[in-house]
Design a protein around this nucleic acid. Structure first.
Length: 289
DNA sequence: AGGCAGGTGGCCA
DNA sequence: TGGCCACCTGCC
C-alpha cells in the first residue's frame, strides 16, 4: 500500500540541479525511475517504491512509499550510497592532471554511483545489449508487469531469479527482449541450480567476482563491470562501452589504438576509482552528443 | 520507413 | 589474439 503522507524523509546533503538528478536516476545506472508530471521522481528497487522531490534551492528529499520496510533510512542510505563520502572520492580522481575529467566533474558535480540490488542489476544489464535507455526501461517494466510481483496498485517489483527460472524463453520474448531472452533464460536456469551463488559473487573481490559473472551467458566484460559497479559498489569496475571508446579516442587522442588497448589504458589511467571516473565521462559525453 | 542501438558468443585467419 | 557477423525488436 502507498502511504500518504510519506513516512520518514531522508534529505541529501548535496544540492542537485534538475540535470544532476536526471543523470543520476535516468542516466543509465538504473532503469526503473520515471519523472512525474509534478517534477518529482518515482523509482523502484526490490520491494521499495521511492519518491524524490527537489525543492527550488536544489535540496532533494527522498521518501519510501511502501509499508513493511523495516529500516527506511538504512534502505535509502544503501541505495544512494549515503554511507560513502563522494566529495572525498571525487577529489581522489586524477582531475588535477586530466583537464577533460575536470570538466566532466564540473558539469555533474553531485554525480555518484548507486548501489542497487545485485540480482536486479544483473537482470537489467542482461537487457542492455545494443539498446538505448528508454528501451531497456521498457523491457524491465514489461518483465516486472508480466513475471514480477505487484507491491502496490500499479507497481510491480522485478521478478526474482527464482521466478524467472520458471518462465520459458518463448514467454520471456513476449516482453520484447529479442535475443536477450535466451541469455536471461539460460542465466536463470544456472542460478536455479545454485541459488546462493549471486550472494556469493557479490561478496567476492572484484577480479574473481567479474570472472564468475562472465560465466553467465550474455554477460561479457561490459555487463559484468556494470553489474559490479552499480550493483555491488565495486568502484574499480570500469565498463567500456561505445561511449567510453569514443571518449578515449576523441578526447584522449588514442586514434590508432585497438578497443582492448583503449580499455586497458582507461583502467590504468583512472585507477582504483575508475568506475566513478567512467560515470563522469559517460554522462558528459551523452550530454554533448 | 528503415536503419540503428550502453554487447556477446562463435567462427575463421 | 583479433576482426567480423548474426542475433531480436522497437524507437527516433
Amino acid at each position: 500500500m502507498l502511504i500518504d503522507p510519506p513516512n520518514q524523509k531522508v534529505l541529501f546533503e548535496d544540492s542537485f540541479t534538475e540535470a544532476d538528478l536526471a543523470e543520476l536516476l535516468d542516466g543509465g545506472q538504473a532503469f526503473r525511475w520515471n519523472r512525474q508530471k509534478d517534477g518529482s521522481w518515482l523509482g523502484q528497487w526490490s520491494r521499495s517504491i521511492c519518491r524524490i522531490e527537489r525543492s527550488s534551492d536544489g535540496k532533494a528529499a527522498c521518501s519510501l512509499l511502501t509499508e513493511n520496510i523495516k529500516d527506511v533510512r538504512n534502505t535509502i542510505r544503501t541505495y544512494f550510497g549515503l554511507d560513502r563520502n563522494w566529495r572525498d572520492l571525487r577529489d581522489q580522481l586524477p582531475w588535477r592532471s586530466d583537464n577533460h575529467l575536470a570538466q566532466c566533474i564540473d558539469t555533474f558535480p553531485s554525480l555518484r554511483i548507486l548501489r542497487q540490488p545485485f540480482g536486479e542489476t544483473l537482470l537489467c544489464f542482461l537487457c542492455s545489449a545494443t539498446k538505448q535507455i528508454v528501451q531497456i526501461k521498457q523491457m524491465c517494466e514489461n518483465l516486472a508487469r508480466t513475471f514480477g510481483t505487484e507491491i502496490a496498485p500499479g507497481f510491480y517489483a522485478l521478478p526474482s531469479w527464482k521466478q524467472l527460472a520458471a518462465v520459458s524463453e518463448e514467454d520471456l520474448r513476449t516482453c520484447g527482449l529479442g535475443f536477450r531472452a535466451r541469455y536471461i533464460h539460460a542465466t536463470a536456469r544456472i542460478i536455479a541450480k545454485n541459488p546462493g551463488c549471486l550472494d556469493e559473487i557479490e561478496n567476492l573481490p572484484y577480479p574473481e567476482a567479474r570472472r564468475r559473472l562472465m560465466e553467465f551467458p550474455g554477460v561479457g566484460e561490459k555487463v559484468a563491470d556494470c553489474v559490479l559497479l552499480f550493483g555491488a559498489g565495486k568502484l574499480e569496475a570500469f565498463p567500456v562501452d561505445v561511449w567510453i571508446l569514443r571518449v578515449m579516442k576523441d578526447r584522449y587522442h588514442l586514434d590508432r589504438w585497438s578497443n582492448s588497448q583503449i580499455a586497458h589504458f582507461g583502467r590504468i589511467h583512472f585507477g582504483a576509482l575508475a568506475g566513478f571516473a567512467q560515470q563522469f565521462l559517460f554522462s558528459f559525453e551523452r550530454r554533448t552528443a
